[in-house]
Design a protein around this nucleic acid. Structure first.
Lengths: 194, 194
DNA sequence: ATGGTATGTTCAATATTATGAACACTTCTA
DNA sequence: TAGAAGTGTTCATAATATTGAACATACCAT
């Protein structure tokens, strides 16, 4: 069995499931035990998966991702590809969320990077819901077109083209497109790891 | 443990992994044993997974999907959503392939349908490679913009806007965008099942 | 009919994953 | 400094997935 870029010596996992899970868990500001409670999976299992000592069953992985939360498709959306690219065509942006709220990311994966840049497209009425990504970084962006109502804790403001925002990611926040036209935002976010 | 639309009575699988695998396997014209050889996984395992009696490990599932072939992300891209929709906004089309060759599908999943309609976008130079989807249906399409070189067995022709094609899916075929501008095709395909 | 080949399913044995408790370590607080 | 609470890791055991062989059917050609 052939394996590219395997960190561990024992390798039941040919795909980098463990590294992805660890990355996303830390990105959500969750400890192994915190995720353990939310996903109803023992922390030891999480440890073994993340260290590449076992390959989780689909059902187990599903429970874990539900606890983060993140979808199965999004989880596996980071495919192995030649990284260290500098230039990205518009079409190359990685789609990490679909439906009414489209998130397209610069670069195929984030593992080697300390900055996530997104092209966000909100269809009219699209709403992120109230979320608190609890990591310690900052996030900010500039509205390109359309109008969004941005709520950060108690502060609320409607932003239009040219307007911008910047805040600590651990503050609860929410984005909602208002008006009849789609809204496009270019945003950036600093992950805590790396 | 709660489960929507579970066909089986025993349910180790909360997500419809088995149904998805079966659908995609049959769609590729592969028997359980044929996929077994290509994926290096015993046919009995495939049977158990498809009948929902086990939840495969990620590594097993990866081997199976490599044999079809299909990516992990694409496999899980069909999320539970309200089906039986009639109208679909352009943005709602389900992206089932990325990179230089973009395939966007009408409807979130195909399980209840007998027709697959795609909005295909080929970046300049994009190429499907020589593929033979072996199912018994037909596929055809009309070029909207740009130019494609279409090869079906020994026949080869360059199609431009307004041109069209139609052939049995079991014939080896290949699409390649030519020229400097991206090429858009609207295509349709009849799956064998259902 | 008869043999050959294909299909998907089932089952006991084996290999792997999931679990809960114990461990080693760090950080915080009194 | 001591204790409590946090972190990730390890390990025997229990639970589950995987395997290979046998089974039941269906289809086709002789």
């Amino acid at each position: 069995m052939f394996n590219i870029m395997n960190t561990s010596n024992t390798s039941p996992t040919d795909i980098k499931t463990g590294a992805r899970l660890r990355y996303l868990r830390e990105r959500a500001g969750l400890s192994q035990r915190a995720l353990s409670k939310r996903a109803n999976v023992p922390n030891s299992t999480i440890s073994l998966i993340e260290s590449g000592q076992t390959s989780p069953s689909v059902s187990s992985l599903k429970r874990l991702l539900d606890g983060i939360p993140i979808g199965m498709s999004e989880f596996f959306a980071f495919e192995p590809e030649p990284e260290h690219k500098v230039f990205f065509a518009a079409e190359e942006l990685t789609k990490i969320s679909g439906g009414k709220l489209s998130l397209r990311q610069v670069g195929g994966n984030l593992f080697g990077h300390s900055l996530q840049i997104l092209h966000e497209t909100y269809q009219p009425g699209a709403d992120t819901g109230l979320k608190a990504y609890q990591h310690d970084g900052e996030e900010g962006g500039i509205v390109v077109s359309g109008r969004v109502e941005v709520t950060v804790e108690e502060e609320r403001k409607i932003l239009g083209p040219g307007d911008a925002y910047l805040f600590n990611s651990n503050r609860p926040h929410r984005f909602k497109a208002v008006g009849a036209v789609e809204c496009i935002i270019i945003s950036a976010c600093t992950p805590p790891s790396f």
